[in-house]
Amino acid sequence: MTWSFIGWILIGLSAVLLIGFSFFFKNRGRYTVREVPGIQQLLSARAAALEKGNKLHLGIGQRMWSGLYPGSGLYSLSILPKYLDGEIRNSGAMRVSSGDGVLTVLARQIIQNQYGDRYSFLLDQNPVKSDLPAPTPASSTAGLLNLLSFEKVSSLTLVGNYGLESVLFSEALHTNAGAFFSAVGNLTSQAALYPSKKDLLIGENIFLLPVAFSGKDSAQPAWTTEDILRIVVIFIMVAAVVLKLVGLL
């Protein structure tokens, strides 16, 4: 048995658990949602900004694909429709940006679908926008900093892939007395933000975000599966260490 084979077993197990729990939670009770202070902070900042008619901004990442943080691009796109609730759609007081053309195009499509599900996107005078401040990470950083300044954004949420530059966004919001929230999957960003922001989502906690927005429980099977997988992986690692110690591996 190779490590690769063990990996395939994990993938298979994940798929089976995911499907199983999806059926289970469809018919039965709820999986207890972990409380994350940062998410509550984000939701209240978002609500306050909307109430005051201020601008919101959602950064969905500097790039779509990342090996070290797999799925983070997809994850940020999956958050977008949940972030776009009715109030935001109607007010249009939000802008979505990324540093990757692919993300921008897909985000735009998602936004249009969200409007399309309810009423004509074209009829809306002030819809939520999806923009590409610039095509490379560094230029995108400069572009986004400008946007934050000119539009007086009062709530910035970063998800997906961002690097060291996220600390610049954080400080820009700090200067504007705005709320900054990060659910960035990138370790570099998390380390850079840790000294200046209290309620960061770190590690796999970032995957809790969609449920917090949607208020639905559709991600609960994923959480359950993830928790089980984590235990399985810990068990495998401990077992591997023990086997290595006794010379069987």
């Binding site: 902070q41 900042a45 306050a48 900004a49 005051k52 009062s154 709530s155 954080s170 919001l173 700090h174 007395a177 705005g178 709320a179 900054f180 929230f181 200046s196 922001k197 209290k198 309620d199």
Partner: peptide
């Protein structure tokens, strides 16, 4: 003892 701004609560 962080200020409200420090912990990102000064959004409003």
């Amino acid at each position: 003892r962080p200020d409200k701004d420090d912990i990102g609560e000064g959004a409003q």
